[in-house]
Each structure stands twice: as C-alpha cells, then as structure tokens.
Design a protein around this nucleic acid. Structure first.
Lengths: 338, 338
DNA sequence: GTGAAAGCGCTAACAT
DNA sequence: ATGTTAGCGCTTTCAC
C-alpha cells in the first residue's frame, strides 16, 4: 500500500493539515516542523494521490489530445510529431496527455470522448481538421481548447498555426527563381484552410512574377491529399499539358505520389520536371531524388500548444490566443535551376 | 458545473446509493426506480467523476505507456504503431493511455514517472528496450507490467513479442531460394535480444542450407540500428568482400542506409545485390526499389498488450503471460532470383 | 504556527 | 428493494 498523508502526519507527529501546508510550502510554517515533515515524506516516499487531489481541486492534471482516426493512422509522421511536442511540454508543466481519436465522420449523435464527460481533462488540444458537429458539441464545456494546424471559421478559438500562405509563396518563388515558368499546383480538398492558404501563396507568387494563373495546370480534384491521389493528379496534369517544368504539391505525400507517376512515365526529376512538397515529412534520403519541401515546425507546434494550454489552465483564463509559426524552404534534389 | 450523483438522486427522488446501484446495474433494483434514475441521468447528462471514483476504488482507469525518448523520436513509425494499437484497444476496455518517455540513460537516481508515484496508472506497458535500472525501480510496485517487443532476461515478466528467430529464417531462406550463396548480415547491437534472435535465425538458415557462416560478411559493429549505421556497415562489408550477392539487414532503417551506400557506389539493387530488411516500416513506394522485408504486426502488438493488461486489471491477476506474434515475408523489388 | 473539521463525489457495507 | 453512513486522501477555512 502506498503511503498517504496520514502516514506522513503520524511519522512527523503533526496533523495532516500541516503536512498539506508543507507540501504546498506555505509561508507560516516553522523551519523545524517543515524539516520534520519533509524528512518523513522523503523516508516514506510519499506522493499525493492524483485522484484525491483532483477530487478536491476539481481538476485532473490531464489534457486531452484529440485527432481524427484517419489523421492518426497517416503514414507520414505529421500529427505524431505534434503529439510528441505536446507530450514533452506537458512533462515540463506537470501535466499528462490523454490521447484519443474520434471518427472522421463524427456526427451529432456520437458520444464525446469519455474523458470529457468524466471531467478527466482540464483542457483540450485538437490537432488537425475535425468534424464541425464535434466542435459544436464542445461549446457546452468551459475548459480551454486549443486548435493546432486547423482553426474553425469562428473567431473565438485559440490556436497554433503555421504560415501556410507564406509557405506557398516560398515554394513557388523558389521554383520561379529556378527559371520555371510553367508551374503546376496539385492539392487535395481546396476547402481545407491549409490547402487553400498554400494555394493562395502559390497564386500570389505566380502573379507577382507576372506569370498567369492557368487552371489547366492546377489540380485539386481529389479530396484526400495522399500518395495515390498525388499520382492521379500528376497523371491528369500531364495529360492536359506537356510543357510543365515544375510542380508545387500541397504536401509531401502528394509530391511523392506525383514523383512515382513521373518515374513510371519516364519523366526525369528534376531534369524534365522539378517538384517541391510541403510539410517535410519524408525523411531525407528515403526517396530518390531527395524532395525539396517547406519545413513545418511540427514538434514546436505541439510544444507551443501545450505552453498556451498550461498558461490558460494556470491562470484560469479563457481569452483567445493565437500563435503563428514560421516555415522555411528546404532545397534538396528534386528542384533544379534550368 | 457538472451534475453529480446528488443532483441525479434529487431529480429522481431516490438516495445517492440507489443511483450508484443503478449505474452499476445491480440486480435488486425495481424496474420502476431504475427507469426514473436512468431518465434523470439522461436528462442531466450525468457521468460519474473519474477522480471520485478512482479515489474510492483505488484505481485510476489509466494505463501508462512507457518508452525511451530516442525510441519515441525514431523516424520510422514502429513504436508509434504499437502505441496506436494499444490506444485503440484501451478504448474498447474503457481505459486511457498515459504516454510518457524516460531517458535512454535512465539511472538509479532518476525519478520514476509521476503517474507511477501518484498512483495514476493501474498498470504499465513498456515498449522497446528500456534501461535496466528503470526496471529494477519498478519491482517495488505491484501493478501489472507488460513488455512489448523487449523482454528483460528474468523470467518473471509478461510480454508480447514477435518471432524474431523465425523472421530471420524467413528472410534468409528467401534469399537462399533466390539463388544467393554469399549472404551478408548487418545489424546493430548484437546484445539486443531482437537483433540477436534475428541473427540466430540467419545462422540457422545459412547452416541448414549447407552454406557456412562467414564472419567476414557479418557486421554488427554499430550500436544503433539506424540509417547512417546501415550505410557504414555496407561500406565495411563491400570493402572486405566483393562477391556479396545479398544482404539481410536486421531492420528496414539499416537496409535503407545500406541501399543508399549501394546507390552511391554503383551497385545496382537487386541486379548486383539483393537486400531484405525487417519491420516493414518503409511505406511501399517511398523508396526505390521497394524494399523486401519481414512484416511485423505492430498495431497488433499494441492491441495484444492492452488486451492482456485489461484482463490482468480486471482479474487482479499477476500471473506471467506471454504472447508470441508471427511475422511474414514480404517480397518486393529489392530481392530477385539470380 | 498548527490542528480540527468540513467537504470534494463516489462506493459499499450495513440497516431497514 | 432502497436508504444511511462511513470512509477513500486530500485541501482549506476557521479556531486556537
């Protein structure tokens, strides 16, 4: 059996109230008793029970981390890294992370995760796009919520985002600097805020360079921005236009799919066509040629989110706060000056 | 404020004890009161407080998932998938997973994870090799512990393992069937049980085929079985022996590193040299040529571990149980009949 | 400066 | 079949 506050009190010859005061190092405690108690705590290896403390403090010391099951199952370690970041930061703040997934087709009749219903979390970090009925359900609850990499349209939520527009511009400008003037864009669901922003960055740079935005070499037919769809998008692209010299893919997964199509069809990368992705989730030398991309600070998104969360919990604040993290261009071997 | 058992009792005009009985659907409760209570619960959207329940039941409803920080940070999604598996299974069993990392150089003076000290977990799943001082520290505690993908030498722990010896045999036999008779082995730390077993499988098959185990084409110089070390191992291998026609790498990460060396040095895969890995963590078309490997049921390892855990918690059992999961050969394009 | 005591929300043994 | 009550381990107000 684990030692309780009573055991400590008995051993130190004080009341349990005194022990509690020492644990919280209250000022008005004589050095003498403090020492006695501390030594008893040490000897017994006492640690306050999480449940008992949670019961009276009406908190849990946990924060929930939610993402949809399909995001969690993605092969690219995007959300995994965000999770790792928040886990590390939670550690620093004496918090624990309870991760759970929700269905990507969550509807109003589904139950909320148990840890919410049972008041087993003090706040929620929501990573990636989640169904809006889910967000609606949450509005009854008053704990802090932080969105990461996705922000609902309403203006009331806190969030940690990356600069997707800027990223789109960086990628496109790089391609332009390399001498390309027929630069295609492939993306998934254009309604997704991140993809839309990346596309807008693309358009900004294309226009700024005096080139024209040509729908023939823009493809966001598919919903899900994964490898197979990258392959398909490339196929459509090249069947419509033969003189594409560069592609900006909305993420690395689609880029890898598109590269596969090019390899299968004798299009040499980067000699015949350059390609750049977004996210930096393809580990450097795993793919040939190494993929140029826009680096996204994934771990940092997690740590920033958890930092915000820890502050909001501590200050019992509900104010809406936003963090925008910068991205950078990573030039590898899939893009080349022509 | 969330509703408590009192609110339900008041609304249904019964005592809180009755509410509790209904919640646990005790037999001796009239259908009538049961309905009353249930409807109150429904209306108030009542859910028992996790902390309060944990306090009296002396449990937490959580299970701790522990791995070393370097395992967690590995780019290959090996332990991530084990974690996902246990998370899904935890869901089924109304359990939550608290993940935390420990230092890979944990020593006797380090503190145990807080959730252990604060009795905030009912059991521990330990994934991958962890420092033995950590395991020693754990012996004071009486909750169930399940090891996954690594089992300390002592015979007392429960664990979910894969058949590494068999996997080594499958890989090597495949290479032999392809007509190779100079088959190299590259591995990391041979003291690691998994690597040792894979190596033993290799030896078994080599000997069974009447070939001889030749130290010149065996390399486990490096400790950590990652990509860079795979590269180095291949370099040493080919500098010692020119007539290697196939390599069995102890895992995919090393295989990918070795492939990079071969590409850099004009050794064509699989024409000049075949290579097979282990783990199946390189997503199919990411690397060229696609890597043959031994598939490891990673998600299943996680679900099996959590199943065991749920049973042990429910039955308050401490008996040592072992699960051995099979592996299979996946033939892709990096191995070829000669 | 320290202790007594109430109470957090729940379970379970014991009454009725 | 249902209610009363004593805790579970802790925090916190209020006395002293």
């Amino acid at each position: 059996m684990n030692p309780t506050i009573k055991d400590v009190a008995k051993m130190a010859n004080v009341s349990i109230a005194t022990v509690s005061l020492v644990v919280h190092n209250h000022k008005r405690i004589s050095q003498e008793t403090k020492d006695k108690v501390l030594s008893a705590i040490e000897q017994l290896n006492y640690h306050p029970s999480h449940s008992a403390r949670g019961l009276v403090r009406r908190n849990s010391g946990n924060v929930g981390f939610i993402l949809t099951d399909d995001h969690f199952l993605r092969t690219e370690p995007f959300y995994t890294h965000i999770f790792i970041g928040s886990e590390f930061e939670a550690h620093e703040n004496e918090l624990y992370v309870l991760l759970t997934t929700i269905n990507s087709d969550y509807n109003i009749n589904n139950k909320l995760p148990r840890f919410i219903l049972e008041r087993n979390v003090d706040g929620l970090i929501i990573a990636g796009k989640v169904p809006s009925p889910f967000i609606d359900q949450l509005s009854k609850y008053s704990f802090p919520i932080i969105f990461v990499d996705y922000l609902p349209n309403t203006n009331k939520y806190s969030g940690v985002m990356i600069d997707n527009v800027k990223g789109g511009e960086l990628a496109t400008e790089h391609l332009i600097r390399c001498g390309n003037n027929v630069i295609a864009f492939i993306g998934g669901d254009i309604e997704h805020p991140s993809i839309r922003d990346r596309f807008n960055g693309y358009k900004n740079s294309i226009e700024k360079a005096g080139l024209n935005v040509n729908n023939e070499i823009i493809d966001y037919t598919e919903d899900y921005p994964g490898r197979p769809n990258g392959y398909n998008a490339a196929e459509r692209l090249f069947s419509r236009s033969k003189n594409i010299t560069a592609i900006f893919a909305c993420n690395d997964a689609m880029a890898v799919g598109a590269m596969q199509y090019m390899k299968d069809n004798g299009i040499r990368i980067p000699y015949d066509c350059s390609i750049i992705g977004f996210d930096d989730v393809v580990s450097d030398n795993a793919i040939d040629p190494a993929l140029s991309t826009i680096r996204v600070p994934k771990m940092e998104m997690g740590t920033e989110a958890m930092k915000l969360m820890a502050q909001m919990i501590k200050n019992n604040s509900k104010e809406c706060r936003r963090v925008l993290l910068p991205v950078d261009l990573i030039v590898r071997d899939s893009t080349k000056r022509i």
